[in-house]
Design a protein around this nucleic acid. Structure first.
Lengths: 146, 146
DNA sequence: CTTGTCAGTTGCTATCGTACAACTGTTGTG
DNA sequence: CACAACAGTTGTACGATAGCAACTGACAAG
């Protein structure tokens, strides 16, 4: 089990390495958080990342400077700021996911078809069992998710 | 598949969070690298981490200051330095692995015995298939392994 | 023995993440 | 309306990571 998880981490790591030169891990996490549900302001992001609001502001500064995030004053309260991921930001996230998916596929393809089916079932069962426990607030610490 | 890997990453994340207040991710990675095989000098560490030697020196400074790593001039060439992980360092790594193992066990235990056997087999197969491809030089980029 | 190479360190600098405190607007409440 | 509470930003400061350049000491080749 530990070995398998090590292998998966390896995949995750390499997939993130794709954008390593352009994003830090924290910046990646922020992007991941920002694409997910709906509108999010700076406070939301700060809380999700577990950091001080001022830290979130600076982080956004950098992401905006890179053209990956867009700041927009909220329509219904001029003191809040809606953060949205730009197309460029989305593209960057996609490249990470794509890499990850490709790598996993490549591994699974090495297995005979029968094994493959069993594997999928087993992973599914595991994910279910884990789902009821895991995926806490800081599941992104290593930069994961979409 | 991606979901299951997400779950496993969650586990990894939480296990590392155990020592989060005492170690940075980079420092953890360095410890992991240093416990593995045999003697390693500063250059080896720098290369394994993919950083400049001077960066490795500074990193070691901090780890030594924390009492997690020991510097010892190599016996056969006085310009090299053998880096070893102290008992305290090993203990820290153990706590991470222990946490990880415990969490995985807790998840697996939620499955019926039959499923469990199948799961183990499937993960094993996956690990094997992955092993032949993956685990490249930078598999440790986020600090993984033991 | 001199010179070149190698391992490691140190000086300097830059960036990032981080927090706290103080400040500016904005919103809501009395 | 006045004042408190809130969202976000800015000033300031620190530690960690990171690299380059210059240096020291040690080894190797000639």
């Amino acid at each position: 089990m530990l070995v398998a998880s090590r292998a998966l981490i390896g995949v995750a790591v390499r997939s993130i390495a794709v954008v390593e030169d352009e994003l830090t891990l924290v910046q990646y996490r922020a992007l991941v958080l920002l694409v997910s549900p709906g509108q999010q302001n700076v406070s939301d992001l700060a809380e999700a990342l577990g950091v001080h609001p001022s830290t979130a502001t600076r982080l956004c500064d950098r992401l905006v400077a890179k053209g990956l995030v867009h700041r927009a004053t909220s329509t219904e309260s001029r003191r809040e700021i809606n953060l949205t991921v730009t197309p460029a930001g989305r593209a960057m996230l996609r490249s990470v996911t794509a890499r990850r998916r490709k790598e996993i596929t490549r591994i699974v393809e090495r297995l005979p078809a029968v094994e493959r089916t069993r594997l999928r079932a087993a992973f599914h069962a595991f994910a279910e069992a884990a789902g009821e426990i895991a995926l806490p607030d800081d599941a992104w610490k290593l930069g994961w998710s979409p």
